[in-house]
Write a protein that binds this DNA or RNA. Structure first.
Length: 538
RNA sequence: GGCGCCGUAGCCAAGUGGCUAAGGCAGCGGAUUGCAAAUCCGCCAUCCCCGGUUCGAAUCCGGGCGGCGCCUCCA
């Protein structure tokens, strides 16, 4: 098998500070390939962000969430990573929206960019290094177009500029299309183009449209050019990873490659990574796309209220509401349970289901705190893969932890298989829980420093791994807004718990159960543990 | 019509040539508990169908059936 050979080879060529067991699926080659960087130890990532003509929806978050993990994981593996997410803030739809709302294009953009950033933060996406906007890079865009004209790959036509696909022999290589099979956009531009498949690099402005000075007519950039210009400006002529939704492969990314490679005469990107799309329900096609628009009115399954909500979420605050309702951490967890290239069937009931499983982690974190007195969230876990390596020696617990860690890393190394990796996380928690049970760690008298030390070490490993996914970074804010009453409520519950404890001592279980049941009706659960009774809301 | 993806237990979902097919939800049995909750243990799939390659396939090839994406703005 060639796998062994590749691994051996990469171990020799890789920088010692980075891990070369990583394999990445490349849309361009349709294969998983060993990950090699352009520059040793450095990774440049460009992800296509939104066109900000409207509020973000959940589908816009799939890419950012997975790439947030990818960056975290690469950093963990020792790379110096620069991650760009572009914002397209000049576009036909933006102009249309601005006219409808009687606002400037800039105002519409500002509003939706703020919404986008809020939603990113809500899902814990905080690894982005730059969010460049197309309108901030106009000089670079114009220079890029000029160069394409100079090199004979583009032509001006009545103030517009078009890319001449017939000059690019490689055109179609990403989406595997032949020039003949491409219909191209017809319409009003058709007569200004030499080829139907030619696409606009620069569009002359009509009266009243926002425009920028250019060597051609005053106008604005075409849809694809800003990505070529900005990625070049920020990451260079050839960079490591370009990402986006699967729906961008054609024409957007195909056109980006054509522009960039014809302009620079070099490969633009080494790894093209595309995430799968979200679907609202089996009947409704993908979210935010043509399928939704066509079927929106038609088939809304009454069983699945979510489909309806998704459609409505195109309006104000849809995603923000969803995050408020479910919690960003749950949505993130839900998205990461599936491999990033798969289609995810989205529904709130599916989020609920995955959240039920997610509770296992939160319960364990509480248990850890009960036993160790330390918060899981502040554990000094290794932030680098190499630092986290350890020899479990004869420690049975740590041997199991070590094995789990290896399986987790193997999953992540295999094209960022977060779904498989999360499975290992569940295993790891079970191992740790089992240790608590068998060693009776909840019982103060049975604890030994040695056992506690192993337990803490194992839990540090758990934290080390969850950090690479950006999961459980901080305590979940308790649902419901805190009020001044919170303290008093807590004191009252403690009082009831004391009364119940007295009842239990007297074997008055009827009273004890009444207290627990009545509190249960108020959504307050009591759990009796060796160290006393614990209560929780919800 | 062209290009491409997918079909694993009741549901969600890893695994893409070789130990007993991860994990989660739901369910069932047990340990534990005054009873619960939590936790742990056990049970619960031969991988859409047919054929082929191979010592050996869920995993590769061919053919069906079914679902989906792109080809037009889309993360």
């Amino acid at each position: 098998m060639s796998t062994t050979k590749e691994l051996t080879h990469s171990a020799k060529t890789a920088s010692p500070s980075t891990h070369a067991t990583l394999r990445v699926y490349n849309t361009l080659t349709k294969h998983k390939e060993p990950f090699r960087t352009v520059e040793p130890g450095k990774v440049g990532i460009y992800l296509c962000g939104p066109t900000v003509y409207d509020k973000a929806h959940i589908g816009h978050m799939v890419g950012p969430v997975i790439f947030d993990c990818i960056k975290r994981y690469l950093v963990y593996c020792g790379y110096d990573v620069s991650w760009i997410v572009n914002i397209t803030d000049v576009d036909d739809k933006l102009i249309k929206k601005a006219n409808e709302r009687n606002l400037s294009m800039l105002e519409v953009a500002e509003e939706n960019i703020a919404d986008y950033r809020e939603n990113l933060a809500g899902l814990g996406v905080n690894q982005i290094d730059h969010l460049p906007r197309a309108t901030e890079c106009m000089d670079d865009i114009i220079a890029f177009v000029e160069k394409l004209i100079q090199r004979g790959y583009a032509y001006e036509s009545d103030g517009d500029v078009y890319f001449d696909v017939s000059k690019d022999a490689a055109y179609g290589k990403l989406s595997n299309r032949s020039l003949e099979s491409i219909q191209g956009e017809g319409g009003e531009m058709a007569d200004r183009k030499r080829h139907t498949a030619d696409f606009a690099l620069w569009k002359a402005a009509k009266p009243g449209e926002p425009s920028w000075d250019s060597p051609w007519k005053k106008g604005r950039p075409g849809w694809h050019i800003e990505c070529s210009a900005m990625s070049h400006k920020l990451l260079g002529q050839t960079f490591d990873i370009h990402g986006g939704g699967l729906d961008l492969v054609f024409p957007h990314h195909e056109n980006e490659i054509a522009q960039s490679e014809c302009c620079h005469g070099k490969p633009m990107v080494n790894y093209w990574m595309h995430n799968g799309l979200l679907r609202a329900d089996p009947a409704a096609g993908k979210i935010g796309g043509r399928g939704e628009r066509e079927q929106q009115a038609a088939a809304v399954d009454p069983e699945d209220a979510v489909a309806g909500k998704m459609s409505r979420s195109k309006g104000a605050g849809g995603l923000a509401n969803l995050i408020a309702r479910q919690g960003g951490d749950r949505i993130r967890f839900f998205l990461l349970r599936t491999h990033y290239r798969s289609t995810v069937l989205f529904s709130e009931s599916a989020i609920q289901e995955s959240a039920t499983g997610q509770e296992t982690f939160f319960r364990f974190f509480k248990r850890f705190e009960r036993i160790s007195g330390e918060s899981f969230y502040t554990l000094p876990a290794a932030t680098k893969r190499i630092e986290g390596e350890f020899d479990p020696a004869n420690d049975e617990l740590l041997q199991a932890v070590h094995a789990s860690r290896n399986r987790f890393l193997a999953a992540m190394d295999d094209d960022f298989n977060t779904g498989g990796a999360i499975g290992e996380l569940f295993d790891l928690v079970r191992t740790l829980n089992k240790f608590c049970d068998t060693q009776q760690l909840e019982n103060t008298e049975k604890r030994s420093p040695t056992k506690l030390k192993s337990f803490r070490h194992g839990t540090c490993v758990l934290r080390e791994l969850t950090q690479t996914l950006g999961l459980f970074d901080r305590p979940v804010e308790s649902s419901g807004s805190p009020s001044e009453d919170t303290e008093l409520v807590g004191q009252l519950i403690e009082l009831l718990i004391d009364l119940r404890a007295t009842a239990r001592k007297k074997k008055d279980f009827t009273m004890a159960d009444t207290i627990r049941n009545r509190l249960g009706e108020l959504k307050i659960t009591l759990e009796d543990r060796p160290g006393g009774t614990e209560w929780a809301k919800g």
